[in-house]
Design a protein around this nucleic acid. Structure first.
Lengths: 212, 212, 212, 212
DNA sequence: GATGAATGAGGATTCATTCAT
DNA sequence: AATGAATGAATCCTCATTCAT
């Protein structure tokens, strides 16, 4: 939380970023409609008017904030896409591991929840998110699963037709955490372990997996 | 959409219900913060002030609306709980079928999404929802799964430890529909079919590797 | 300047009128852009929000205020139009007399100046003013002048083609009063007397008129 | 509309003038209150801050802008004042001709309207305008008219006491154009012709009824 | 109880003015 | 001097809540 004036007048990009960072926090905590730009400004250490030097209005700030926050995810996806073909086992393990450590264990999960929450009211966000994240992710996972299916590694070849299934427990975890986390925490690690086994278990060898 | 005056002046309960019904629509469409009580009143065919005769304030209306809307679900759960033990196969099939037809195919899905998205800002809702729906549902599914596991019907006995998994694709479907449904609709039926197969063990490996 | 609460809740028309009355004062004093609705509300003895129960927004208030303020003028015009044909001499004398006493000598002149001032930025006002006041007035004066011309009462028959000329010294007086009145007051009575004589003087009898 | 940088950095006077020129356009189009200094700066090809190097604040810019814009008029008046005495006939004809061609037919009329409409809120402008333009103009016209009256050229000698009357149809034309020009254009030429005839005595009654 | 006009705190946005560069 | 990013006071407008009828 930078204090007023710490940001050099010279670096507009830093200011912009400070506003975006502050916006994440405020929008996540309050939702779009209830978020106050005053709060964003204060948190960013800038004056109210400054926000409007960088963003057209509240909605623009919101959308750009989502884009900026999602950018690293996109980069990751692109990086992964360039990797040589990896076995489904490895990809899944890595995905769940990364998600658990770098999303669920961090405030980042709140952003995902925010997208889920506000997306329906912001078509632009839905489209952007689909284009940049979802369709790329599906493509990637689709490829991995198809190869796995061909090698007979999947418990059910139908999985390859629904790469979304890979992500289902992650969405569940995020939603659960937001709604019920305070009442009954979820053992995400355990859940993902089971799910992972479930996806890859060959018929006929169910349940043989080790558990931590 | 009842018109003003159609509600008997004598029946406060009908008025209350009319307000709740109207509230569902408005809150679902706008979210809590952006919802206008003016709209609720108009939709309910009631004067704005009347809302305050039945509900303490906007938040109270919201919470009671969720309770009321969730009530039928609770009843269903209770009814099902009284049924004799049914095989997992049947229960799952029925659950997915009902969900697909009576939730996803209807405005009701929006309510579930509303709970998911606004819940985090309303602890009372999280607690209520957990107490009345989630814990009961888990209990129910837990029992079904445990029995299924004992009979070796599950692809992985770990599933019995995470009844939440049963619901994961449903949550996915609801979230997808809200965020991406307009861009790329999801073949829910196909998805659930695959998932259903995935959860249930293939013939030939029944009873293997029981643990516990 | 009614005080808050003096207006019965029951009489919305009175409130509306109070707001309009207050608006005249504020808009006249500040101009449209600089006028503060807070001031209007305070002057009208109502809360800010109340204004919006009667008027869509600031511009709507402005336009309706002009309409309301101009209404009596329109009525007058209509009343005069129903009168039997009067000689130009009488009509002119009456017009100048009324204008001097009931417009120039009162705050009403400020409203005329406001219309002149803001009209160009509010086409709706220009059109309304033309339709309701100007064209009717021209019609009226046109008839009077035509008859006068036929009877040879006019100094120049061309006047009948430009009924606007009747009004020229009145506009001059209003404009002068606003811009220069504080520095050098204008003897409107004297000016109008001369102008009156000028219009009606028959060629050949110039200057024979008595002066008060 | 000079582009940034075209103005010599060396010539502060040119910058000042560029700002004044831009200001005319913006103030005329929007009025004082609604005019934005951002627009002035952009139009002048200057940074917003630069305005404050030349003018104390918005009001100062406005007042100086009026002074600058009115300056040529003053020069004209002075030039005319040095001319030998001309007959009223010629002076009037010339005045109306010049006004019609160089004011009404040009954006300059907007400036006159601006002075008329904003003047009342800026006493300094009223005083300045009176001192520099109005009183000189009146003096000038007063002289012309007095001589004309003595020669019996006026339709009514009273005109000499109200030189303002000369200008009444011009004010009318400017006001009409702003308020009603879009709805019903005014035949200024015709109007002025009639008025001109009206002011000047018909042959045959010259010299009658002189009064001091 | 029911109404809906009235309230006024609250929040998004604008823009004259300042000031570090 | 010139710049234009930054400021924050000012203002329109909304809407949850109240209350006289």
């Amino acid at each position: 939380m930078p204090k007023r004036g710490e940001l050099g007048r010279r670096d507009p990009e830093a200011r912009r970023q400070a506003i975006l960072d502050a916006a994440v926090g405020v929008f996540v905590a309050q939702g779009f409609a209830a978020a106050k730009l005053d709060d964003v400004a204060e948190k960013a250490g800038v004056a109210k008017g400054t926000i409007y030097l960088h963003f057209k209005d509240k909605q623009d700030l919101f959308e750009q904030m989502v884009r900026a926050a999602v950018a690293p995810v996109i980069e990751r996806l692109e990086a992964v896409a360039k990797l040589p073909d990896l076995p489904a086992e490895v990809v899944l393990k890595g995905l769940y591991e990364v998600f658990r450590k770098e999303v669920l264990g961090t405030p980042r999960k709140n952003l995902l929840r925010l997208v889920i929450t506000e997306g329906p009211r912001f078509p632009a966000i839905g489209e952007f998110y689909h284009r940049e994240v979802v369709s790329r992710g599906l493509q990637l996972m689709g490829g991995v699963l198809k190869r796995a299916a061909e090698k007979g590694e999947l418990a059910d070849d139908g999985i390859a037709r629904f790469p979304q299934l890979i992500v289902a427990p992650l969405i569940l975890a995020v939603v659960w955490d937001g709604l019920l986390g305070a009442v009954e925490p979820l053992d995400v690690q355990g859940l993902l372990d089971v799910y992972h086994r479930l996806l890859l278990a060959k018929p006929g060898n169910a349940g043989e997996g080790e558990r931590t």
